[in-house]
Structure formats: C-alpha cells, structure tokens
C-alpha cells in the first residue's frame, strides 16, 4: 500500500510498468499469505497444547516437558476424563437437543407471522423482542431463580424447574426467542409475497399456508437456527451455574468443576476440555456454512 503506487503517465513505458505491477502484486500477495499463515500458527497454539497434554502420562507432567510431544502416548487421561464427564455430557444432550428443536419451531412460527401474516403493531413487537437478544442475563437471573423455585413448590415437582433440566430448557427457549425469530424473519422476508397471496386467494388459512407453502422452503433457516441454538445451549455456563444442581449439571459446569480442582492433573483437564468441545466442533466442521449464517444474523444487518 505504498503511496507512490501510481506513476505519472508517460514517466516510463507501459510494458515496463506492467511488469513492475505484476511483480509488486506477487510480492504483496506473498506477504499477505505469510502473515495469514503466521496467525494460523498462533490460533492453533491452544489446540496443540490441548492435544499434546491430553495424551501425556503423569510421569511426563514436569514443566520442562510442557511443550514437548509425549514420549509415551496414553489414552488414560481420556478414559478418566470420560468417566468424570459422561453424566454431564448426557445432561447436555438432554438439554441441547430438545431446546434447539423447540426454539426452531417457535422461531419459525414467529418469523412467519412477523414477516408474512402481520398484525397491527408487529414492528413494535419485533423491536421489543430484539432488545431481549442483548440483555445481560444477570439482569433476570435472580427473579428467574425465584420463579423456578416457586414453580417447583407449586407443582410439587422437586428438582424439575429449579435444579433440573426442564427448567434450564425453559430458560434457554424463552431467551432464545429473539435470535430465532430474527433469523427466521429475515429469511422469510426473501420469500415472495405473491406466493403467500396466491395461497390466501385460494382460500388457504394461515396455518395451511404455513404448512404447504412456507415450511417446505424453510430448510436452510431451520438448519441455521438449530445449529445456533444447539451450540449456544451446549456451551452455556451462566444459566447452568445458576439454575442446575449436581444431578443436572451439564458439561460446562462439570468441566469447570474438574478443571477447578487442584488435584486433577493437566492431562485429564485437557482431555475433558476436548471431550466437552467435540460435539460443537463436529457441527462446526460438518455444517460450518450454516453456523456462519447464524453468526452474521446475530449482527443484525451490519
């Protein structure tokens, strides 16, 4: 990006200038590639540490070998980490799968109505929803705990709402409404109004139109929302720490407990961290395209 990039016309003959430009373009491309590759190395440092440490036997825990590859590779840390983490992983599955599906169903209906079957004040409702996307959840946490505790007492179902997975799913579904509605609404805006109108003229009601016209083309939006919510629910720590107990701790809380204990060797901590990350990493690798779209939707319309 040097300032003297463009020569005054006629200062050199055109052929020479062309060759120079090509050389410079090649050079800047090389520099760009080198810098990007250097950042790749930096970005992968934590991954290297996680992998290498997780396969080390306890005898190689000495600081002097911190960055070295294991001399003897062992699966022992992974085995122990799995034993400790498995109940949490199961809880996370029970949390993230139904939570993501319910969120997607709600978001789809909301997005459909707010873009294609609008009622007076629909814009205001949408705006009020959007603020819910940005609120710090600390601001609702104490009342939420109180409400779930009293739901336990009211229903007599101890450890279901407060201290249980259903309560956590409820919280995630409710606070996921804004982002899910936003993604579906922005997607349905691209569906031509004429198709909806045509169905209307044919006498189809709201639900018929939704089922026969809108739902069949909703695949990509469902993929985006389900992936987004699955990742968010799987990775959540804040709600889990406030709303769950030892029986219902999801992966993140268990991982934090394992890692927070001074007695657990680093190899097990790292194996546990990797185990906890595998489901979302698989989703990212296989369905990265949809993951990206969810991310961009989170930025509203930048």
């Amino acid at each position: 990006m040097a300032a003297e990039v463009v020569q005054a016309p006629g200062s050199r003959d055109a052929g020479d200038r062309g060759a120079q430009a090509v050389r410079r373009a090649r050079w800047t491309r090389g520099v760009r590639l080198a810098v990007l590759a250097a950042f790749v190395l930096v970005f992968l440092i934590p991954v290297y540490v996680l992998l290498v440490t997780s396969f080390k036997p306890l005898t190689e825990a000495d600081p002097s070998r911190a960055w070295a590859l294991p001399e003897v590779w062992t699966f022992e840390p992974w085995r122990v980490a799995w034993e400790k983490l498995a109940p949490g992983i199961w809880n996370s599955v029970l949390l993230a799968v139904p939570g993501a599906l319910i969120s997607a169903a709600l978001g789809s209906m909301n997005g459909y109505v707010l873009s294609k079957w609008r009622f007076p004040g629909a814009d205001l409702v949408f705006t009020l929803f959007l603020f819910g996307m940005f609120i710090p959840y600390q601001g609702v946490m104490i009342p939420l705990v109180q409400l779930l505790v009293s739901l336990n007492e009211l229903t007599g179902l101890n450890g279901v709402f407060y201290g249980g997975i259903p309560g956590l799913v409820l919280a995630h579904v409710v606070y996921g409404i804004p982002i899910c509605t936003l993604i579906f609404r922005n997607y349905y805006v691209t569906v031509p109004d004429e198709i909806i109108e045509a169905a209307r003229v044919d006498g189809a009601g709201m639900l018929r139109t939704y089922r026969s016209v809108v739902l069949p083309v909703s695949g990509p939006a469902f993929a985006v929302v389900i992936i987004w919510q699955f990742t968010a629910l799987w990775n959540d720590f804040l709600f889990a720490v406030f709303l769950t107990g030892p029986q219902s701790w999801p992966t993140t809380v268990m991982l934090n407990n394992i890692a927070g204990a001074q007695t657990v060797p680093y190899s097990q901590q790292m194996a546990a961290a990797l185990l906890a990350s595998i489901p979302t990493m698989v989703v990212y690798v296989v369905l990265g395209r949809f993951f990206m779209r969810g991310l961009m939707a989170g930025a509203l319309k930048g």
């Binding site: 992968l44 990742t231 993140t252 890692a259 990212y284």
Partner: peptide
C-alpha cells in the same frame, strides 16, 4: 475456518487451556 473455529467452543473449555498457557 481456522480463524473462526474458536467461536464454536465454550469459554469454559477455552479457559481450561488458557489458564495453563
């Protein structure tokens, strides 16, 4: 893909390795 993958990981898992680092 490489620059973005940390987004898919929980802050808790990130914290485990960065506390070591």
């Amino acid at each position: 893909a490489i620059y973005l993958f940390p987004m898919a990981i929980s802050f808790v898992a990130t914290g485990v390795v960065w506390r070591w680092l």
